[in-house]
Design a protein around this nucleic acid. Sequence first.
DNA 1: ATTAGCACTCTATCGCTGAGAGTGCTAATA
DNA 2: TATTAGCACTCTCAGCGATAGAGTGCTAAT
Lengths: 355, 355
Amino acid sequence: MLIRIRLLEGVLSLELSPRNCEILRTVVHSYIKKAYPVGSRTLTKDFDLGLSPASIRNIMADLEEMGYLVQPHTSAGRIPTEKGYKFYVDGLLKENQWEAGDPNLEEVYQRLRLEDVRELLHETSRFLSVFSHYTGLVLCPNFSRMILNQIRFVPIRKRHIMAIYISDDGMLYNRIIETDDDLSWSELDKIALYLNSRFSGMSLQDIKNRLMSEIEEDKKLYNRLMLRAVQLARESMDIPGEGEVYLEGASNILDTPEFAIAEKMKMIFKAFDEKYNMVQILERFIDSAGVKVSIGSDNSFLGIEDCSLVVSTYKRGNQTLGILGIIGPTRMEYSKVIPVVDYTAKMLSKYLEEI
Amino acid sequence: MLIRIRLLEGVLSLELSPRNCEILRTVVHSYIKKAYPVGSRTLTKDFDLGLSPASIRNIMADLEEMGYLVQPHTSAGRIPTEKGYKFYVDGLLKENQWEAGDPNLEEVYQRLRLEDVRELLHETSRFLSVFSHYTGLVLCPNFSRMILNQIRFVPIRKRHIMAIYISDDGMLYNRIIETDDDLSWSELDKIALYLNSRFSGMSLQDIKNRLMSEIEEDKKLYNRLMLRAVQLARESMDIPGEGEVYLEGASNILDTPEFAIAEKMKMIFKAFDEKYNMVQILERFIDSAGVKVSIGSDNSFLGIEDCSLVVSTYKRGNQTLGILGIIGPTRMEYSKVIPVVDYTAKMLSKYLEEI
DNA sequence: ATTAGCACTCTATCGCTGAGAGTGCTAATA
DNA sequence: TATTAGCACTCTCAGCGATAGAGTGCTAAT
């Protein structure tokens, strides 16, 4: 009989009756706060749910059977499974309200007046870390994805030129290249002019492909300077396409009891050291909109478990530029972190828009 | 009698007879390898010193009295004090021989052909971390100390200019500044020309001071463009003078048993997060020559203990540019690390020379 | 001066025990 | 029929004592 009802509920409201939802949410909430397995008695004492411990026990047993909770051992309280966390977070994401509170990123931006996008992003990751109390992450816009607005060449010293790529969204990349001969300032100007006329508005990746594919056409280029231009462009664009990632407040993560075990700390920091992997993990979110939460084994990067990511994308106009967010323990204060990440992503996008 | 002799030795060879030196060195050596307090019996077994445990015990008791060794508790072996480590390291520094072995930084440099000094330094800190198995550090040349070779201005977009400072030693710094009006390329050229003629060869700090002190003379400047030049220079140089520091392989330090305690790990990483402090610690070594070792409480930065620094300076010609080295546990393999740091500093200096 | 012998000290480890928290089941209740 | 009180059971964790092991310092012998 009981089983029939459960099945019915499963069809009606994704397995869970409103009351069970309530209990599940409360359990997760309590565990996030206290970091201790929550038992039926404690729950009734702390939350006043209008139910006796015995009833809670029954419900919890059901929730365990459905895979939302587990017991670390018989005769211990329950802790959420990943499925449990996901359910909890889904609820939060729906009512993702941001109460204009302390963290004021706009003020930070105003104060710093950062014209350099990279500094801006670095500062943003610091902001995330400080206000989430976890580790802040910002993935810089992918170089090869960026849309070229202009290219400039500046002679630096004998046989060395600085190539400056200016993207549509104000991002700058510069590169020193060595050349065989010295080019005059005005020659460089002409070269830049030529390249801009050809490539402005294209993504660096496309430009690169174009440049590579027309290698054999070089000889046909009537003008020596243009030949030189193509060569310069090729050289200066020969850059590893890896994204940069800013990671701030790594040690924040150590304040959580989960990571009070030396072995786990080591894992985490080994993973943080490998920025390359971090980039890959983050890049998976580049196409999603709004705040995303990736819990536990979803991001089993280098064997780090018990970690979650809360990320969002930042953009300029329609174009998504990169990812930002925080990384923290799976048992994380999502209800505080999600709004912070959401707010930060929006403010950053807004600020980038204004540039 | 014993006391008299000891005093005599103290005068003759800094407290320690050759035999005692030998034993002390062996104890430190053994402790560094094994990470366990070394007892008299173990020592004779592992090293064959031609003495019985009992004799070793006597000597060790003397060394303890002199402050070179301590016992964690009665009936445990001895471990070196800071004084003990210092004695050991002093011996190493004298015979600081570098055997051309595996680590080949020249090859790294050749392969990467890094024209950007910052990338070069970043790569160097990675090298240090990999070959020392501890945490690599490189302090970038101090901005305000750098000698200006040239300044360039490049228009980036409406009302935004990039100021590029090129130092005598090939270091580049660039800064985006916002201006009230748009300046043409040729105007910017003239401005740069003017500033270069006035300031080339001076340190940025001096230039800054000069610019500030002559504020009231602005009106006397006959030429509008020159007035503009001074303004631009002032704005673009308004930069915090903080040094940058590259820190790589932080997690390496966690492999040492000393830091297998969660509490200590936390301390370390909190300290690493505060790069500002790291800069200050490192800058103390800017005027010293050759490899320096700073042990334990000498660098009580933010309460981190049990850590040592092995650093050296890198330079270009006569001018010291910055500091590099490694940070690791006080119980560190100095005999391996010191040569690595020495080698790295020399190779980096050599490479910078060639640029 | 060096060493063998011996009593002593301190730590780390293991197994044990009891308190505490929590569960599941059953029977009673509204 | 859903909920609850009662009870026996389970598991963890902190504290305790005993033991083995490593090392010391002292004394007497070489």
